[in-house]
């Protein structure tokens, strides 16, 4: 595309301003720049490639439609990430009607956490290369229930406060806290198990 070299070195802010004036080529450059990040966030939440692609596309369309509302209070990619998260949450709520209760949720509710997950005393992620750590995190995230994974993503990756997470997940702060606690403990135990497998 003839205009790609022109836009490739332009800052996000300039591209956003151009896109707000209707410049779709500038918007396409923003999509190209940040598509992997938006897709990765959707995939982390949905754990399904096709759904993640569809939802990330939908997020970009909504981003275009709402672009004039973006005032620069956060970075553009943060703003887009929030859009895709909301779409994923909506989709998860729709799917929840058809999803059976996970064993993890039952464990959490029955207080079985302490019995089944001893405290991990050795840091299982020490001396891991970053790429390997990310792979293990991805592997472990896939094993969490939807609710636990969502609260972990919103808190640890999106850095939202409990109150904000409760609002987005339409649950109480207490529920957010107990889900987050369970999710973290589960992750710690999973990472410890991967470490043991590596050493054995």
């Amino acid at each position: 595309m003839a205009s790609q070299p022109d836009n490739a070195s332009t800052s996000d802010e300039k591209l956003v301003r151009a896109a707000q004036r209707g410049d779709m080529v500038a918007f396409e450059e923003l999509v190209a720049r940040h598509r992997d990040k938006i897709y990765a966030r959707a995939f982390s939440m949905m754990r399904n490639e096709d759904e993640a692609v569809d939802l990330s596309q939908e997020a970009w369309v909504k981003g275009w439609q709402r672009l004039k509302q973006f005032q620069g209070e956060s970075s553009f990619v943060t703003w887009m990430t929030r859009i895709v998260i909301n779409l994923c949450l909506d989709q998860l709520r729709k799917q929840k009607r058809h999803r059976s209760e996970s064993i993890e949720m039952l464990e959490e509710e029955s207080g079985g956490v302490e019995r089944q997950m001893p405290i991990v005393t050795v840091n299982p992620t020490e001396r891991l290369e970053r790429s390997e750590l990310r792979q293990r995190i991805d592997k472990a995230l896939a094993l969490l229930s939807v609710e636990h994974r969502t609260v972990l993503i919103l808190h640890e990756f999106e850095e939202l406060e409990y109150k904000e997470i409760a609002k987005r997940m339409q649950c109480s702060i207490g529920t957010v806290m107990s889900r987050l606690f369970y999710a973290r403990r589960k992750m710690a135990n999973l990472m410890a198990a991967y470490k043991r497998e590596e050493l054995s």
Binding site: E28, V31, A32, R35, D36, Y39, A40, R41, F43, S44, E49, V53, S56, Q57, W60, V61, W64, I119, V120, T121, N123, P124, T125, R130, L133, R134, Q135, I137, D138, L141, L152, I153, E156, F157, R184, R185, M187, A188, M191
Partner: peptide, 29 residues
């Protein structure tokens, strides 16, 4: 333990590549 988990997760979100070409992905949008 909670602090180690929080520290491991922070900034280490799995990085993925969208499995579609730039042109095709953009054309649908």
């Amino acid at each position: 333990e909670l602090r180690a988990t929080k520290s491991a997760l922070g900034g280490n979100e799995p990085q993925l590549t969208l499995p579609e070409t730039r042109e095709f992905y953009w054309s649908k949008i």
